[in-house]
Amino acid sequence: MANLKRMGLMCILPLLALSAGCQQRTPVALKAPMVKPGDVIFQESMSDLSTAIKFATHSKYSHCGIIFSVNGELYVYEALQPVRYTPLSAWVARGRNGHYVIKRLKNADSVLTTATLDKMMEAGKKYNGKNYDFYFGWSDERIYCSELVWKIYKEATGLELGKLQQLKDFDLNSPAVKKQMQQIYGDKIPLSEQIISPVSMFNSPLLTTVAEQ
């Protein structure tokens, strides 16, 4: 257990450094009606862990969150460290070159009613403040970005955004991936662990792109 804690600390340092550096960026303006509560937003983040995710999934989109309206302002509910609400403009500014893609349920007008959105926010409450899951486990003890969005949608709507895979289904051969795997798991890699990746959600046939920059 002590080794796991040390490995978790090794993995969290690049992400904390990334967050500290990105606070100096100027937030961009991004307002409704382009964006609606319940939308899923994707970006390319810049930590070492995110680089490994990109190599493993063959996609530049390594981080995602779900957009909610809180007191009339737009926020991204995300699993970073810890799980939290981040102002939408600040979230966008934190990604590489401010690039983002926003996706929406194709039948959002009928599914994402006010009652359903309230249910989604309620479903997300139990994760608020939880630690980021660098081990990419499927339990609710810790949680990672795409897992957070997937579980909220599943609980509140019954919909599965993206296909669940096992760790062994990803490309684990690049040096960047091997380095992160060694830091996180050591020699005991849980190849059968169930995982939902950002790119699997990005490619979900249930979603359509509504905004991109």
Rank of each mutant, 00 (worst) to 15 (best):
L4P: 04
G8W: 06
C11R: 10
L13M: 12
A17R: 12
C22G: 13
V28E: 07
K31A: 08
A32T: 12
M34E: 04
P37E: 09
E44H: 08
S47G: 15
D48C: 07
L49V: 15
I53F: 06
S59M: 03
S59D: 10
C64A: 05
I67C: 11
I67K: 07
I67H: 12
F68W: 09
V70E: 14
E73A: 15
L74Y: 15
A79S: 13
R84T: 10
Y85V: 05
T86D: 08
T86P: 04
P87K: 08
P87G: 14
V92W: 02
R96W: 06
H99W: 05
I102Q: 03
L105F: 00
N107K: 07
S110R: 06
L112E: 04
L112V: 03
A115R: 02
A115E: 06
T116I: 05
L117K: 00
E122Q: 02
K126Q: 15
N128S: 09
G129N: 02
F136M: 11
R142S: 11
S146G: 04
L148N: 10
W150L: 01
W150F: 15
K151W: 05
Y153P: 03
A156P: 04
A156L: 00
L161V: 02
I196T: 11
P198S: 12
S200H: 14
S204I: 13
L206Q: 14
L206F: 14
